[in-house]
């Protein structure tokens, strides 16, 4: 049995950590800037990322801030298990505009036109060399996370940083959670599809 040991949500109007709303989007700063400042990210590479990668990096930083054990894993023990519905569509639209409307294809945008780039950005930020997978599905599929985390732990990973991160027309729907063998936090819940469905709604 594996456990969900911490989780968080980010949308375009709020950010919740372990089910408690922590921030709402009402400041004069941009929302992403508010999150960046609040979670003290201080990472120069952050500013060149596309929106989905920024959300992914913020999500992984929130998980680390809530579960001190995450940083104790070896550099290849944490797998990244991510999914969404619209792949990299948010940046695909912008890249297509670059050559259809703005004169020439932008290489800086093109490199973000794959959904798994967010995994690369999280891996780089944390120096995590573990397993990576990005899956695309019409709906949030709790069984995928349950099955795949149970497959990875312990044969190919000791823990999984998981995410459902969908960004389209700059609207954000993100749910991140950390899965490990031990119930390392007070709020840990068994990794089941039902628990995932309930937490995602929280």
């Amino acid at each position: 049995m594996n456990f969900i040991t911490t989780y968080c949500h980010i949308s375009e109007d709020h950010c919740a950590v372990n089910g408690e709303v922590l921030l709402t989007n009402e400041s004069e700063n941009s929302w992403i800037r508010t999150l960046y400042d609040h979670f003290k990210i201080d990472y120069s590479k952050f500013h060149k990322m596309d929106l989905m990668s920024k959300i992914g990096v913020i999500g992984s930083e929130i998980l680390k801030s809530q579960n001190g054990k995450i940083v104790d894993y070896d550099d290849d023990e944490i797998a990244l298990v991510f999914a969404n519905k619209n792949s990299s569509a948010n940046t695909d639209v912008k890249f297509q505009q670059s050559f259809k409307e703005n004169g020439s294809p932008s290489p800086a945008l093109f490199v973000y036109t794959l959904p798994n780039i967010v995994l690369g950005e999280i891996a780089i930020k944390n120096k995590w060399y573990g397993e990576n997978i990005f899956v695309v599905s019409e709906n949030f599929d709790p069984e995928f996370y349950e099955n795949y985390c149970n497959i990875l732990i312990p044969s190919k990973a000791m823990a999984c940083a998981c995410g459902w991160v969908n960004v389209l027309n700059d609207s954000i729907e993100a749910f991140f959670f950390f899965v490990e063998k031990e119930a390392s936090t007070e709020d840990s819940l068994p990794l089941t599809s039902n628990n995932l469905l309930n937490l995602r709604k929280a």
Binding site: D76, V111, I124, W128, Y129, G130, E131, I133, K156
Partner: peptide, 11 residues
């Protein structure tokens, strides 16, 4: 089989 990230550069 297995996978691993370089944790180095996206492109």
């Amino acid at each position: 089989g297995s996978s691993s990230n370089d944790a180095n550069h996206i492109s």
